[in-house]
Design a binder for these strands. Sequence first.
DNA 1: CCTCTATATGTGTTGTTGCACATAGGCTGG
DNA 2: CCAGCCTATGTGCAACAACACATATAGAGG
Lengths: 178, 178
Amino acid sequence: MALEHAILVCLSEQDLSGYDLAKQFDTSIGFFWHASHPQIYRELRKLKDQGLLVSTDHSQVGKPNKTVYSLTDTGREALFAWSQRAVEPPAVKDELLVRLYALDDIDRPALMAQLHDRLEKHQERLRQYRRIKETQYASPDLSSRQQGKLIALEMGIRYEENWVSWCEEALETLTNRA
Amino acid sequence: MALEHAILVCLSEQDLSGYDLAKQFDTSIGFFWHASHPQIYRELRKLKDQGLLVSTDHSQVGKPNKTVYSLTDTGREALFAWSQRAVEPPAVKDELLVRLYALDDIDRPALMAQLHDRLEKHQERLRQYRRIKETQYASPDLSSRQQGKLIALEMGIRYEENWVSWCEEALETLTNRA
DNA sequence: CCTCTATATGTGTTGTTGCACATAGGCTGG
DNA sequence: CCAGCCTATGTGCAACAACACATATAGAGG
């Protein structure tokens, strides 16, 4: 119950090839559910076998041809049924936080460097999310689908802001204590 | 590179049996790295075979005996070496956020109910984290190990606060738009 | 005496993910 | 003409995690 549904979600908006899907899973929806392309192609075949998708071959000029997938009615029903199922909050799994549990037995300067690195990475993502918000969701009149995506993006922004400020404070605390 | 190190981290503070470790992975360190007991017992045997741990049998009265594990010097070195390795930020994987991407094709009242449910769960965790902070980290003079744990706990608190406020606002936005 | 709960430790199976590797068309620039 | 890159689609394998199931001691309470 996982990638399968994320693919149905993507295809509920528009028909896409495996390659295009992989790009979505690297950018847009990938912020909240990442997947590699081998995973995606495998899942697409499975979903097609189950009758949730159909595929059509599109010939292209200047590029290799591609196979575009669309939701069937059964697929759309499966998406709806999935949306009614309860969701558990995902478990946090973060090595950096685990390392803080052994502050006496780890390489402290290395930890500080890692915190710095994390800070920069989260700052970069934050910039990216804010750029997306400004460029794609600035309109005052969003469709309900866009509205939903914006709410998710909002979580992304807060999540990154939270990390940025936490990293800064953690670094400060650890510096004063060194 | 995963549960293995979280176990080394736990044992760097004190010797523990598999059962005690499982409890830690349900409460304390489990907030940032969860594991089930079968996983833990399997990993312990592996780490022992690798020479990172040694075990001693402790007979108990009134309870079944237990096997207590301790870090060897090699184990402590492995922990230190691991702490020097770079960490990637963990990928977010959250079905609830994925569902927001298909707001037009899902069961909207069900989504609202799920948001409510999530809100309550995060509120509960937040209460739990704050309770732990007050009861275990209130002292002005913490050891450096405790200091590290507190920094991690601080992330837990902010993380939950963030979820709580996001859920509230998401519910509000979706209500006004219905 | 029986059930329930807590302590204590596992096996077996399945599902998911990640990662490395494989292939192939066609454009662009040196 | 060749290298490098983007498009496009896969296979194979290993690691990891989730979940159900299995087993045993011993106290507490009905």
